[in-house]
């Protein structure tokens, strides 16, 4: 009995947006009297950082400092429609909606600034530091705060914008399957190295080396967070997790974390990764959805690595110690 090492890899693609489209998200953006901008949505942040990246997208589009953007989301009385957070859709849908709303608000802001500075809108630019100035003439400037104040109290104008993104529905042809199902595709390739204990059947993942192609990253730290968290979840899916341990039987269904086993902190190997950015044609600043794909490539990579280590062909998950030992028994039986 021994410990055997193996390497495996897998290449996957992943669609962005709800399958076949028809999943709109809206955004409203308005300036406060003091030149902050409120982005009003009803999108849901599950922890992936939606509020953060929508603030980044709004600040980038408006040309204002990030800390002057307030994201107000999660109330159906105030926030316009969002289909929801799933299908790797929200950065793409909500991000595009925010760009549209913020661009309209920026235009309104520049029109007020133009009136105050007595120049034309086309001559103005923002410095991203809270000021609007005439291109090439930085001293001819007005602050965003002053502009917003003037809009409210002198000119009686709103600085606001409306945005929506919809990929129109594309029904699937019932005969051929012809359809336009997604907005873009992200890509991943993961290499996993494992060590299998042939006596206990236990599999240890020694490391992940992965490349991800995700379009423009809105926030690389949050992309990395998805990558590492996704690798961990993929490891659990590949080796341990199930609500039906004797599937298809329904017996022994776990009802707690003691019996629904997931990898612990000590089981987590290093995750080396490289992130490539190939722009999506229709994503916000070229972004693609990343949150789901990250779980998918580690699973077959681990199974391929186990098969490589043992010279067997396991074709099911989770690859529990029992599955490993049965595969080894079968191999031994076939050899005799």
């Amino acid at each position: 009995m021994s410990k055997l090492r193996g390497t495996g890899f897998a290449a996957v693609n992943y669609p962005t947006g709800m399958h076949l489209g028809g999943d709109p998200t809206q955004s409203l953006v308005h300036a406060t009297t003091s030149g902050n901008f409120v982005v009003t949505m009803s999108s849901v942040d599950l922890g992936q950082g939606l509020k953060t990246i929508l603030a980044q997208i709004a600040a980038e589009t408006l040309g204002v400092p990030l800390d002057t953007v307030i994201v107000d989301t999660g109330d159906t009385d105030t926030g316009p429609h969002c289909t929801g957070t799933f299908a790797s859709r929200t950065t793409h849908r909500a991000g595009n909606a925010v760009i549209m709303a913020a661009a309209e608000a920026r235009q309104a802001m520049l029109e007020v600034a133009a009136e105050k500075l007595e120049v034309s809108v086309e001559d103005l630019e923002t410095d991203g530091q809270g000021n609007i100035h005439v291109k090439g003439v930085e001293e001819k400037a007005i602050s965003v705060a002053e502009t917003a104040g003037a809009a409210h109290f002198e000119l009686g104008k709103t600085i606001s914008g409306r945005g929506i993104f919809l990929k129109t529905p594309s029904p699937m042809d019932p005969e051929t399957g012809e359809s336009d199902p997604d907005s873009t595709q992200a890509h991943a390739c993961t290499v996993a190295e494992v060590e299998v204990d042939t006596e206990t059947g236990n599999v240890e993942v020694l490391g992940f080396k992965s490349a991800y192609e995700v379009g423009q990253q809105v926030n690389p730290a949050l992309v990395k967070g998805q990558i590492v968290g996704g690798a961990w979840m993929g490891m659990g899916h590949a080796l341990q997790e199930t609500t039906a341990p004797y599937y298809p039987a329904i017996d022994h269904a776990p009802g707690d974390f003691q019996s629904y086993v997931m990898p612990g902190a000590a089981d987590m190997p290093s995750v080396e990764c490289e992130v490539l950015e190939i722009a999506s044609r229709n994503g916000p600043f070229g972004a693609k959805g990343v949150g789901e794909m990250v779980t998918n490539s580690p699973i077959p990579a681990i199974v391929n690595a186990i098969n490589n280590a043992l010279g067997v062909r396991i074709t099911r998950i989770p690859v529990t110690p029992e599955v490993v030992l049965r595969a080894l028994d079968e191999k031994a039986a076939n050899a005799t």
């Binding site: 590492v228 961990w232 987590m268 995750v271």
Partner: peptide, 18 residues
Amino acid sequence: TEGLAGNICRCTGYLPII
């Protein structure tokens, strides 16, 4: 990691916590 053994995180994969 032993100190974290009783605490489950479903999002991060633990590495950032470590």
